[in-house]
Amino acid sequence: MEEIITTEKLSKQYKDVLAVSDLSLHVRKGEIYGFLGLNGAGKTTTIRMLLGMINATSGSAHINGMKVHAGNTNLWKDIGYLVEVPYAYSELTVRENLEIVRRLRFLDDKHVVDAIIDRLNLTQYAHRKAKNLSLGNAQRLGLAKAMIHNPQILILDEPSNGLDPAGIYEIRELLTSLSKDQGVTVFISSHILGEVSRFATRIGIIHEGKLIKEINSEHLEQLCKKRLRVKTKNNILAREVLLQNNLICEEIHDNMFELESESAIANPDEIATLLVNKGVPPTMLNVVEEDLESYFLRTIGIKGGAK
């Protein structure tokens, strides 16, 4: 499939800080690529380099086969973007802000402003000054500026910031439909795996400036770990019994312990029988699946918020 966004060993160094290191990405046409990382992981720096806002220290980026650099104005015709918190000219209304973008993008059709206002549900705020918008509506205005020219590529940095749950759902549906129906390529960054994993077709995880994992979303569920959680009235004895059967347990909170053994997870009934026969019947036996957030944290080497 045609590659739309590619980076080759892209790096950015600020004095002593290596913000992005040897990043090689390949985003294909029509993909929704979720770019995940904690705050400060290098997501925004990467996006700014993709948009020619900051210069790479080394490596290169190409979009639509054209090398990204500040002087290549043709490159931006088909790209819509939103970087970090969107800001607008505070003294101008929503409509006037969009009118400026329309003109700077050389869009002759004046109706595109009305169309994007309608599409982003900003109609009732069209004549409101940007300084009086709520955070959520300011975010919608930012998205409207990114999408006014119906771009074939969308580069969005944390587009859900400030949106309420209905707004997040709405944007998710909009991006999914753009990707599926119009073949729009979406590169979207977020620090919330749960949100992006719902609609991204591929996910890249960046940590401390390095791309540490790329996953197709359909494989994501399989990568999440399962565990067998056990609770008894005598956990010390129960763990001894299991250890004698080569089953390693790890104690966790709430007077429970966990087993990671695949056979135990596949056959919890056998574990129950074993414990009953040794006089420590389980009071709770539960197979739990790691959620996507935990998977994300485990992948970047953080557990419970601490390394």
Partner: peptide, 15 residues
Amino acid sequence: SERTMKDLIALPISR
């Protein structure tokens, strides 16, 4: 100061 610079950077019109 109004953080609108980024909106003028990646456009079909030269800086």
